[in-house]
Design a protein around this nucleic acid. Structure first.
Ligand SMILES: [Mn+2]
Ligand SMILES: [Mn+2]
Ligand SMILES: [Mn+2]
Ligand SMILES: [Mn+2]
Lengths: 216, 216
DNA sequence: ATATTTTTTTAGCCTAGACTAAAAATAAGT
DNA sequence: ACTTATTTTTAGTCTAGGCTAAAAAAATAT
C-alpha cells in the first residue's frame, strides 16, 4: 500500500517516461512542484522498494513492478474521469482535478464497479488509453495535427494536455474528440493552421495548439 | 482546509458527542484507535484553531464552527453512501468503508452533483440524516425496537451501527429499512424479542440487536 | 479520609515528506 | 582543455502526527 505522496511520484514517473524510459529528476520536481532534494530523497526510497532503477547522478527508470503500480493508479484516474463525464455529466475540462484525488482511494470494488457500469471502456475522456487490471496499456500511436499537410482530413482522437484552460479553449471552438477537420492553410512562418470542420466552421490554430491535438 | 487526520478527528467528535455535547478524550482514542497522548495533542491544536472548547483534564466540546465543519464532512460521507447504494448498486453493508475515504475529497462540485442526481436525499442508506450544505442536521429522534411492547407494530427507520457484520446479519433475515415488524414475545430474562414480519417470517432477536434497530 | 484505579498530560522520540543552503558531479560553451 | 552553467546530492532543519513512559490530576472504592 502506497501513500498519496508515493502514488503521485509514481504517476509522475509514468507520465514523464520518454522512449527510452529514462526520467530526469529535474522534471519530476517540476511536474510535482517539489524541490530537487525532495525528489532525490524519494527516489532513493523508491529504489529500496524496488520501484525504480537508480544510480547516483543518473536519470531514473521504473522497474517492471513500478511500471505496473503506476499504471494501476493511472487506471483509477482514467476510469474515474470517464465515470465523471459519462455517468455524472461533468465536462471533460472539470474531471482531471477531481480524478487527481479519487485515484488515491483504496477500494478495488469501487473501480471495478465504475468499469462495469461504463462497459469496460478503453480510453478516457481525453482519448488516453485506460490500462487494464494487470497494468497493461494498449498504446495507440497518434500523430499530432501539426504533422498534417494541406488538404489532409484528420479526426481528433486525443489531447496531449488535460488542463482546463486548454479544454475550455477547445470547448469554445466546438473542437471535441471525434470531430473531423480539414487543413486548409499552413502558415510557414509560425506553423499555425487554418482548419475547417463541422458546418463550415473555420478556425486558425497556433502551432502550440496543433501540437496538443492528436489525430488519425 | 483540513488534513485527513483532522477530518477524522472532527468526525469522531461529531459521532461521540452526547446530550450535553461533551466528549471524553478516552473515547476519541478508542474510536480512532490512537493513543491518548495523540488525542491530547490534537485537541490542543483544535482548540487553537477554534474547533473545540478545551480545558486541561476536562472533556472537550465542539465549537459552533467545529460542529459545522464536522457536519460538512458527515454530509460528504452520507451523500457518498447514498450515491453508492442508489446509483452504483452497492449493498448498504459495503458502502461505509468506501465513504470513509471519499469523505476526504475536496471537490464541492462532486458532492453537489451527487446530491442533485440523488434528488436531494435527507437520509443515508442506514437511515441517518444527511446534514444540509450549511451543516445543519434535521434530527429525528427514533426509539429503538427494544423499547417496544408485545403486540406493537414498528417500522424500521434506521440502524445505530453500520458495521458490515451487523448489516449482513440483517440482510440474511431480510430486515431492511421500511420493513414493518410486530413484536410477538419478549423474553424477560435477556430482553430478546420474537418478531413477525413480511410473509410470515419469524425471528428471535437478541437485546443487543433490538437496541441497534431504530423504529417508528 | 485515605487508598486505589482511571484518565489526562507532559516529555521525549520517531517517521514521512517537505524545505534551504552548500558541495559535488555532470553537461555545455568557448 | 578549461570555464561556466546546470543538475544532483548531501547535510541539516521543520511540521504533522503518530508512539512510549512517567507524572499528575480526577474519579472511585474502601
Ligand atoms: Mn487526467
Ligand atoms: Mn493525485
Ligand atoms: Mn457510514
Ligand atoms: Mn475517514
Amino acid at each position: 500500500m502506497y501513500s498519496v505522496a508515493e502514488e503521485n511520484y509514481l504517476k509522475s514517473l509514468f507520465n514523464l517516461a520518454n522512449e527510452d524510459d529514462l526520467i530526469h529528476l529535474k522534471h519530476i520536481g517540476e511536474w510535482l512542484d517539489v524541490k530537487m532534494s525532495s525528489v532525490t530523497n524519494m527516489m532513493k526510497r523508491f529504489a529500496d522498494k524496488g520501484l525504480v532503477h537508480y544510480e547516483n547522478y543518473k536519470p531514473v527508470r521504473l522497474t517492471d513492478r513500478g511500471k505496473r503500480e503506476a499504471a494501476l493508479i493511472v487506471r483509477k484516474h482514467r476510469l474515474t474521469e470517464m465515470y465523471l463525464v459519462e455517468k455524472m455529466g461533468f465536462g471533460w475540462e472539470k474531471v482531471h482535478t477531481i480524478a487527481e484525488q479519487i485515484e488515491h482511494i483504496h477500494a478495488p470494488d469501487l473501480f471495478d464497479k465504475m468499469d462495469e457500469i461504463l462497459g469496460f471502456p478503453t480510453v478516457d475522456p481525453h482519448g488516453s488509453p485506460i490500462p487494464d487490471k494487470d497494468g497493461n496499456i494498449m498504446e495507440v500511436q497518434h500523430k499530432s495535427l501539426s504533422e498534417c499537410e494541406i488538404g489532409e482530413k484528420a479526426t481528433l482522437m486525443a489531447v496531449r494536455q488535460s488542463s482546463s484552460d486548454f479544454l475550455n479553449y477547445l470547448n469554445v471552438r466546438k473542437l471535441y474528440l471525434g470531430q473531423t477537420v480539414e487543413v486548409k492553410e499552413i502558415e510557414p512562418f509560425d506553423g499555425s493552421m487554418k482548419i475547417i470542420y463541422g458546418t463550415d466552421q473555420t478556425e486558425i490554430l497556433s502551432k502550440k495548439v496543433c501540437d496538443m491535438l492528436l489525430v488519425r
